[in-house]
Design a protein around this nucleic acid. Structure first.
Lengths: 348, 348
DNA sequence: TTGAAAGCGCTACCAT
DNA sequence: ATGGTAGCGCTTTCAA
């Protein structure tokens, strides 16, 4: 490996001039710069990352902690990891994976040794062990997701409350007076941070708009697809003429399957809105109007904040919520008059 | 951050003694070691990774290049990433993610700058661009998968040929004379490295054992599940009494669904063997006898080899194939006598 | 505009 | 068994 002093010799300048010519941190005459660039190209010089790290007191590496649970939805998770990596590279950072079972141990290790400039936290649980640790270490930490106790933390996330309200509003404004929410699995309300936020916002906002709001959680026996279908069916039986669909592709497909089974056309007989999905709801058998969760948005912002903190900038703690998008794909219409009847006299 | 000289002062010893007491690379008297350990604990000292990297001329980091294609099966991919990370940590290495669209650019960057000690290559394509690059750089590289041209490369993979033969043998020995292979999607035979190996071994070995061997690729119209079912159905119609099932969980479920649709009991009416699956074929509706692809096995070996090369050890280039496992879950039986007829007179 | 040299915080060689 | 110190290959301050 050729070193900087060889480049300096070849270019007939000093080491510091080579360094400055390459970094641009000090003006260098055009002629000198060209001589340096020529030498760099001739010798195939590439600055040594280890030496640079020591001298600059930073590594240009971010750690990404991602405790993989059994119920982790791989495609969604991968989307976040990829989005984080892309965002980081745009700012000249690399991503170091922290997958150790004891997430805190990994974080502590990279923080204490100065191996990374900042830590990004994925798959945040309400009572995440990494919250306490992040307060104990000096390495800047950014959470992608919102834990219960956010005191002093920097968090980034989709504004699930606004997203939920937007979904409810869209249906209410189309004339729906009975709205269903297809929930997550029971465990998700304990292990993940956003399902409760959606649930609470749903109840609060349907009440506020004066419409019936009903949540159905996919539980009970059977495969996942079966549970989703049953939950969707229950919502329809309960009189819901518009449903907010959460969850992965399978959940969405199951709702569509149940609608088809009942001969319900979308949106003529049933209005659907996809809420906070990471997959493409436009390529479903029936394209769905969606308020999507776009990993790249959250990850871009998280990386941006991490980079600022790593650069020594003072970033105020707090929760940064990303305004939801609304993608109209025509799966909302006014409720069918006929469908109103069972909603009004459910047991007649 | 407390530095090594402060520890030395607190312990009343020299810097080098602290270093040796911590690394164990030189004998240190018990008493001295305890004094050092005490000082380390008191001051909360943790060696600076950047300084260590420069001094030791290595980073204890492996790069993992994983070009994510659209057809990447997220759960399988995640399993490999996780397995790699786990294996690496066991040997005190961290994993740096290389996800750039131009995989070669990322590899070149980390190699030229000495940012990593070795590179692990995932999702290997037959004509992978990373093959040529790996020959051009000095950083040790290990492929998890086998490209077409392996000259001079270190590759690790499941022995797909042996696995395929083992699957064929198991069915032949149970008395089957007509065996089906549920193939991968047509694109997989271009983009991925192992489907052709399985296909070729299947044809060769069924011929060698003197039984009929037929491959059916899930193509044509319809959703994936539909294509898998059709392919399985075609194999059965073609007289196959035993089928080697490849692919993801959906492929397996589809074959089981098709069997159920036809009222075929497993293994009484139809024998099934899962081949090279990464998911748990024991928790399917019908547990399947399997010759699994265990990511941890490949990744452990790959990391082992990478670590050896990184340590300067001379590792011979070549393909290391991992002997397949055979997990008997009772989904193989002798072919039903009635089923023999169509196999013998297919068009009668 | 350029150069010399003092770090960055360790490891490991050479002494004793 | 222990200590002193020369690197490791850069960046950046201080001088000119």
């Amino acid at each position: 490996m050729v070193k900087i002093d060889e480049v300096a010799r070849a270019a007939g300048v000093s080491i510091s001039t080579v360094s400055y010519a390459l970094s641009g941190k000090r003006p260098v005459s055009v002629e000198t710069r060209q001589r340096v660039e020529r030498a760099v190209a001739d010798l195939g010089y590439s600055p040594n990352a280890r030496a640079r790290m020591l001298a600059e007191r930073r590594t240009q590496i971010f750690a990404l902690t991602e405790p993989l649970r059994d119920d982790t939805h791989a495609p969604t998770h991968m989307a976040f990891v990829l989005a984080t990596s892309i965002a980081a590279r745009r700012k000249e950072y690399d991503i170091l994976l922290l997958t150790e079972a004891e997430a805190s141990a990994g974080m502590r290790r990279v923080a204490d040794s100065g191996l990374v400039d900042a830590i990004l936290v994925l798959d945040v649980a309400p009572d995440d062990e990494r919250v306490g640790l992040s307060r104990a270490i000096r390495t800047p930490t950014v959470f992608i997701g919102v834990p219960s106790d956010t005191d002093g933390l920097i968090c980034v996330d989709l504004d699930f409350v606004a997203a939920t309200r937007r979904g409810v509003d869209a249906l209410v404004e189309a004339g729906h007076t009975s709205i269903g929410l297809l929930g997550h699995t029971p465990e998700a309300y304990e292990l993940s941070n956003f399902p409760p936020r959606v649930r609470d916002a749903f109840y609060a906002h349907t009440a506020e708009r004066g419409v019936a709001g009903r949540l159905r959680i996919p539980d009970g026996p059977g495969a996942a697809a079966e549970r989703f279908r049953r939950a969707a069916g229950d919502l329809i039986d309960g009189g819901a003429t518009g449903i907010l669909v959460q969850g992965n592709e399978e959940a969405h497909l199951s709702v569509l399957a149940e609608a088809e089974r009942r001969g319900l056309r979308i949106p003529a007989d049933l209005s659907l809105v996809s809420l906070a999905a990471t997959h493409d709801t436009g390529s479903l058998p029936v394209p769905l109007t969606a308020i999507p969760l776009v990993p790249q948005d959250s990850c871009d912002l998280a990386v941006e904040l991490a980079a600022r903190r790593a650069a020594g900038e003072n970033v105020a703690p707090g929760i940064r919520l990303i305004a939801p998008l609304f993608v109209d794909r025509g799966s909302i219409a006014a409720p069918a008059p006929a469908a109103l009847a069972p909603a009004i006299r459910p047991t007649a």
